[in-house]
Design a binder for these strands. Structure first.
Length: 268
DNA sequence: ATGGCCGGTGGAACCGGA
């Protein structure tokens, strides 16, 4: 089965591009981020008519995540555990029921900018950057919890993390950015070090493979990109991995998102 | 060296994004 993740930057504006991509590539499961829609306005029927079950967790104007699945969805959970005061719609989980049940975790990790620095030049863990790091600590706790089940699961989405210098066309431009600061990258590595497999890099070691190009500064035309959309697989899920690719070319189509889809193929 | 874009909201400019 093919499972894709795609930050669509507004589902209403992206319906033509999203529909064309679905028809072209026919993924079994799609994890969406930046839906930017309340659930009542989510075009549920449109996707149901294409053969998908739908689970959505949105809010007004910003954020918002969803899962489309050709397999039944069970045990949908909206929101990342660990902070009842967090009202941002950035996390959704559901189990897809095929030959083998797989827990799907869709996430839109906080950007974290702007970062404030103290007099010594050290980043201050407050404000949006503090929220990002706290959110990543909650995500780590959730991953630890799921690992104890010893079952296939994956965490996929827009991590807003550049894991390594090779994952940016101009790494020097990101050294004071929340996407690339050491504490952000360390938090991502902690997740991986639980025993999760970062699907893309296990299969594609070459540099210059990105999932995001800014709308500004002609970033796409200059291939000034970053790789920030990732799939992390549990050991039981990694055993099923047969491929992982980025659908780069659709960034050049009509009315694109600034992100492109990334997908895994699983022998399940 | 610098700025260059989008979508959503709401019905003009602003906010948020990365």
């Amino acid at each position: 089965m093919k499972i894709a993740s795609y930050n669509i930057a507004g589902i209403k504006a992206r319906m033509p591009a999203l529909t064309a991509w679905l028809e072209d590539t026919n993924p079994d499961v799609v994890i969406l981020q930046e839906v930017k829609s309340v659930d009542e306005n989510f075009p549920r029927e449109h996707f149901e008519n294409m053969g998908y079950n739908v689970a959505a967790h949105g809010q007004k104007s910003f954020n918002g995540v969803a899962i489309l699945s050709k397999f039944p969805l069970e045990d949908v959970m909206c929101g990342l555990p660990g902070d009842d005061t967090d009202e941002q719609a950035r996390y959704i989980e559901a189990t897809i029921i095929n030959e083998q049940a797989i827990r799907i975790c869709g996430l839109y990790l906080p950007n974290g900018n702007p970062v404030d620095f103290d007099a010594d030049g050290a980043p201050i863990h407050e404000g949006k950057y503090g929220y990002k790091l706290a959110w990543m600590a909650r995500l780590l706790a959730r991953a630890e919890e799921l690992m104890t089940r010893e079952e296939p699961f994956l965490m996929a989405g827009d991590y807003n993390i550049i894991p390594q210098p090779d994952d940016a066309a101009r790494p020097e431009a990101w050294t004071k950015d929340a996407l690339f600061l050491p504490d952000s990258r360390n938090a991502f590595r902690k997740l991986v070090n639980l025993g999760l497999t970062e699907a893309f890099r296990t299969r594609n070691p070459a540099p210059e493979q990105y999932t995001f190009w800014d709308f500004q500064r002609g970033a796409w035309q200059r291939n000034d990109g970053i790789r920030i959309d990732h799939f992390l697989l549990s050991p039981e899920c990694a055993d099923l991995l047969t491929d992982c690719q980025i659908d780069k070319e659709i960034r050049g189509r009509e009315k694109p998102s600034d992100h492109v889809p990334i997908w895994v193929q699983l022998a399940a």
